[in-house]
Design a protein around this nucleic acid. Structure first.
Lengths: 157, 157
DNA sequence: GTCTAACTGAATATCATTTGCAATAGGAGG
DNA sequence: CCTCCTATTGCAAATGATATTCAGTTAGAC
């Protein structure tokens, strides 16, 4: 599995920076990997605490998420209000997100042409891009259907 | 001037929602209009307080910014860490942003093709977009030059 | 002018995140 | 395997942005 590979890469990363290889850090990686691709930290902290009373504390989760971000295994992908949604990247190719404001569903997509056009814009401004984030907020197909149903009911009432 | 037009539209908006037309709200619009296109709320609050000891309080600024957002005169355009940068839209056409992570400079751009490609992606997913935000983080041309200079000096030292 | 609901300011609460500190545990060197 | 030093951990407290509560103040309908 490529999770093991990622963990050993992370181990190298920690050594290089003079950090120690601790159980907690690797347990957190496992938890994140099992949680699903997108998460918020508080959510993750609660989930970990529910699963395992003796697991890493809130502080350690925050600190480890930060390290994993620097390492590149995690990315902040959605910022909405005061919420930050992270993504466990783990070698997945780059992509952007559609976010349903009704149900919170997150749909990933990738458009080569959009990426290329961005590069062109950057060149035009002699700007060296480091990273980018495209968030499209809207209503997903499921929620549109639900709305139609409920609208129908309102009429009937 | 179109600021007056905007204010009278905002007045209508307030009336429609059963809100009152108060001096404070309109003074805040003036301050924002004079401040520049991009601002953070705390920054704005300090600036307003410095200019005018008797101006609106922090609470009122937050509340008014919220109203202006709902009205559509203000948009959250950049979310970076715990910072939120707002933009006074005021009828300006839609655009996206390049953000220099060295100096904080914000460059606006618009690419019709990117917008069209986004619409196509939404259609493919039967997703109804409401709004979107494309943030490109990187280093602007000025900062790249500065870096070269300082690198040169390091070598000489 | 009167009256009521909306507004305001100040203080307080909240929420996510960070930090200080004392106790603990990696892991390098013996 | 033991020792020692430093990084790490957990907790509690600090932070920073934003929201809310409440008592006093106003807009504006009648």
């Amino acid at each position: 599995m490529q999770l093991e590979e990622l963990k050993s890469k992370f181990e190298q990363f920690l050594r290089q920076r003079g950090h120690k290889i601790t159980r907690g850090r690797f347990e957190i990686i496992d938890k994140i990997a099992n949680y699903g691709p997108h998460f918020e930290i508080e959510e993750l902290v609660r989930w970990i605490a529910n699963q395992d009373r003796s697991a890493a504390s809130r502080s350690t989760v925050y600190r480890t998420v930060r390290l994993l971000q620097e390492f590149g295994a995690i990315r902040e992908v959605i910022k909405l209000g005061n919420r930050t949604i992270y993504e466990f990247v783990a070698g997945k190719p780059h992509h952007e997100h559609l976010i349903c404001v009704e149900c919170g569903k997150i749909i990933e997509f990738y458009k080569q042409e959009i990426e290329e056009l961005q590069d062109r814009v950057c060149e035009e401004h002699r700007f060296s891009p480091i990273n980018h984030r495209l968030e499209i907020f809207g209503v997903c197909s499921d929620c549109k259907e639900k709305k139609h149903e409920s609208r129908g009911m309102e009429v009937r009432t």
